[in-house]
Simulated scan of single mutants.
Amino acid sequence: MTLTETLTHRHTTKAYDKSRTIPAPVFAQLLEALHYSPSSVNSQPWHFFVAETDASKARIAKATSGIFAFNAPRVTEASHVVVLCARTTLTPEYLETLANQEQADGRFATEEARNAGHKARSGFVNLHIQAGDIAEWTQKQTYIAQGFLLLSAAMLGVDATPMEGFDAAILSDELKLAEQGLAPAVIVSLGYHSDADFNAKLPKSRLPKQDIFTTL
């Protein structure tokens, strides 16, 4: 499919075929999409929890109770589920880890270049710390990773459901997120839709292009 065909074919899946599992080589590519997602100043302020067994998916589904019960089967019946979490802080130690990794990966020709890059990133992060919006900023970065995951899934013929409809407190407690300096951003279920997925049969609906694009 062309990119446009992929974009128009992609939809938020409402029901999954529990009998179908994403092949391991395909799912490995989806993890690569998350791994190589871009982030501001290469901060990579995220962590991804992957559920691929019934038991692990049941843990995630605990957060889809009460008013969010409509999302429970989209977690338990999917092939895989990914919980995308954002770091709540970016400590000096973490920023040092990033600089060391970039150096190990050959991004700096000299030690001076490494130190300059580290100083620039730390300065940008400190701007958000001073503004008091570091947790909000890292959540925004994590949504970039979600976009890469959704598009990559569509390109590979995998259906997906991004979900904000979950109890963040329950999920945080289940995965001990606060203790790890993390906060849940979004849950994405992945797999193949079933015949009960009414959304797969519906046409796309978007505002007219002239309402959302302005050429300067």
Rank of each mutant, 00 (worst) to 15 (best):
F148N: 10
G66Q: 01
N115Q: 14
A168N: 08
V158S: 05
A99S: 15
E102F: 14
A178N: 07
V188F: 04
A86F: 02
A183C: 09
E93T: 04
L150D: 04
L182M: 04
L127H: 14
R121C: 03
K176F: 02
Q130M: 13
E179Y: 03
T97G: 12
R59I: 13
I187R: 05
A145V: 13
E102A: 11
P92C: 10
V82Q: 09
E174L: 08
D173M: 08
E112H: 11
A168F: 12
S122D: 12
E111L: 12
Q130F: 03
A135D: 04
H80W: 00
F108W: 08
A185K: 08
A78R: 06
T91H: 14
R59E: 13
G132D: 03
A78L: 01
Q141Y: 11
I60L: 15
Q103D: 14
T88C: 05
A72E: 08
L150N: 08
A185N: 06
V186D: 07
D173G: 12
S172R: 04
T138K: 10
A153T: 09
T91D: 15
L84S: 07
Q101D: 15
A185Q: 01
N115H: 08
N71R: 05
A99N: 14
S79V: 05
E102C: 03
I67C: 09
A154S: 02
I187K: 12
I134V: 13
H128L: 14
Y143D: 07
E102S: 12
L156I: 00
E96W: 04
N100E: 15
K119D: 15
Q180C: 10
T89S: 15
D159P: 02
E93I: 03
